[in-house]
Design a binder for these strands. Sequence first.
DNA 1: AGGGGCTTCAGTTCG
DNA 2: TGCGAACTGAAGCCCCTC
Length: 801
Amino acid sequence: MSKEKIQTVCFWLLDINYEMLGDTPEIRLWGISDKNERIVVLDRSFRPYFYAILDKNSKVEEVKERILKNELVRRHIIAIEFLQKKFFGQPVKVLKITCREPPAIPKIRDEVKLIKGIEDVLEADIRFYMRYMIDNEIFPCSWHEVNARELSNDKGWQVDKVFLALSPPKLKIDKKKLPSLSVYAFDIECYNVHGEPLAERDPIIIISRVYNGSDKVILTARDKNDKELLNNFVKDIKRLDPDIIVGYNSNRFDWPYLIERSKRVRVKLEVSRSNSTPAQSVYGHFSIVGRANVDLYDFAEEIYEVKVKTLENVADYLGVFSKDERTKIEKSRIYQYWDEKEKREILLKYSLEDAESTYGIAEKILPFAIQLASIVGLPLDQIGSASVGYRVEWYLMRQAFKYGELIPNRIEKAYETYKGAIVLEPKPGIHENIAVLDFSSMYPNIMIKMNISPDTYVPPGTEVERSEVNVAPEVGHRFRKEPPGLYKKVLERLLDARSQIRREMKNLKPNSLQYKLLNERQRALKIIANATYGYCGWTGARWYKREVAEATTAWGRKLIRETIALARKLGLEVIYGDTDSLFIHYEKNKIEQFIQLVEKELGFDIKIDKIYKRVFFTEAKKRYCGLMEDGRIDVVGLEAVRGDWSELAKEVQEKVIEIVLKNAEPNNAVKYVRKVINELKNQKIPLEKLIIWKTLSKKIEEYEVDIAHVRVAKMLMKLGYKVSKGEKIGYIICKGGGEKLSEKVKPYILVKNYNEVDTNYYINKQIIPAAMRVLKYFGITEQQLIKGEKQTSILEFFGGS
DNA sequence: AGGGGCTTCAGTTCG
DNA sequence: TGCGAACTGAAGCCCCTC
């Protein structure tokens, strides 16, 4: 029974997929209506297509005939349409070939590609639902309006209403408020008596979940039987019907594990809104139809301040769940807590805290993820797992469609290096009252101003009037001034949208919901704009052109050089600079004059980013620290902010920096370092602070040299732990072993006794270098740090001890 | 054999 | 599965001296 009434439905798009309905593809738009109903809008009007570029001399009708002569192709084709398009800015003749069903596209493309008169096929590798969204300008996490007829929900989908679209939905650009979204955060614990849990062998014992913040439940297995647990999990999700499901590392661990367990114990993991099970999809994520399955780990990876990205560390950093308040259980002993009745309560608490942390992280991250998805145009469940390059690319593809530009194929090109930015030699030591000035969005603005783009590039040999092109310094690449290129149009759009939002924000209260929403949006816009330069120099990019990246950095170098020259002209001393920033002695009037001069002479905006009361440079580039007016300290590049130094060394350096910058009393720093060395000798420093973390950045077999963390990884593997590429390995340097450092390492989890620790290593290779990095500029010697407080008599100095 | 000096490998950060 | 510039420690190698 179908209800005939035609209505206008307004909905926020949460998820999209398609299914074949006989030989008709049906697009399904899952969303939330403005009446807060969960709905699905079906569109059966769209068909897949791709383009075939015609050779210069080929005749349209002849090529068409040749295409239709192919039996297989003819059976699948609905229409062939001749069109004029642009490819890299040049007019091209193409055939738009529309087919019946998406799965047939790869076959048809391969056949058509071989036909005489056809140079290449384009846009045949765009997934069907993405094609649909691009062509109809439909955006995830955005509001749309559609004329539709309500259908009966005869497939039993978990929605309030089912609609059939009478025409594609239209984006409602002015409606920005978010619908009320329900969020389900979960975490699983597995029985791990054999070490690393294996889904083929070890049951899931606990699933904890937090729904919309306050609703918390711990589901448990019956001893080691998880069939009922899995059934309860499915029931729980179905009952609550969340819009968004979040986990931490859930795409790599929880979902594959849940899927395998369900298969083993014969439970249907029907957690979607269409009664289907989670399926692995693009970028390795698991898709749950009708909902958004978001793995927060993907976003945590982008928080570079957190070096070891465990759930606890990320929750702690985001202020969601303090590390000190967490229930602590050694991962490898989880099974013991399960088996021993009196300990089980602790494990349940621990597990729920994981779910609570996950929920808390979701609250911090989802607002940004939602804005990113709505700008880039990738569905919410994919945006996190898509790399920076792909995010930029999807945005570009959307824009290219709007401008009638064909989307280039993805072709892996040979890697070529090119020159990057300039970094100035710093003047070592302490400087007082320093302003840091920087160009805002320097590369995007250069690309806009010079119209740098693959489609405006003029290759050598092409004759063009000098007045019609911008010529890059040093490298000589030429770019047409007109018409505006793809990068220019895209970047202008991003930067304009961002300024507009920032203007709107000025009229809002900073703690209002709307303000926060807009703030996340402007952040997302900035990130995409700033990533565009990196994208254009990436050999995997569809719009890769080395000359584009090379010209951009060349103009960047010229700009910063000319800016330095202007500063000197005004008598300002430049202390340091990196890429788009300059450190200059702060003289209010002169700096204001300078900012105006740069704007007038060079046509770029430069602004004061911060003012340091005091700043300290070593002779190394990219390494300094500074004290701001409000007492905060910035540490840049030094050991204290690096993830591959022990916490002990980092703390020492941090403190030394503080003493030196705030009190300018290096002798106090010396006393402090001596104190720490003594504490270490007396085994007073917690072992955790001695752990050194390094990323296993390749497969173990691929390493050419014997190196500490690889050796540790091998030890862990012998103990039954799974160690994979990309993982952080934590180890402690111990006594004994051989001469080489790599022969003295132990996985930190195995170090129980302080007597094992090679304290000399931590003194000589961690504490002292970290402290000396700063202190040597104040005439302090290593000896002063090592020797006890009372001595340094000449006698002892020569006599040795 | 052992140490100095240099290069290479590897990891990490800056902008 | 965004870029190049830059730094640093440890391993590995060559060469010299003994």
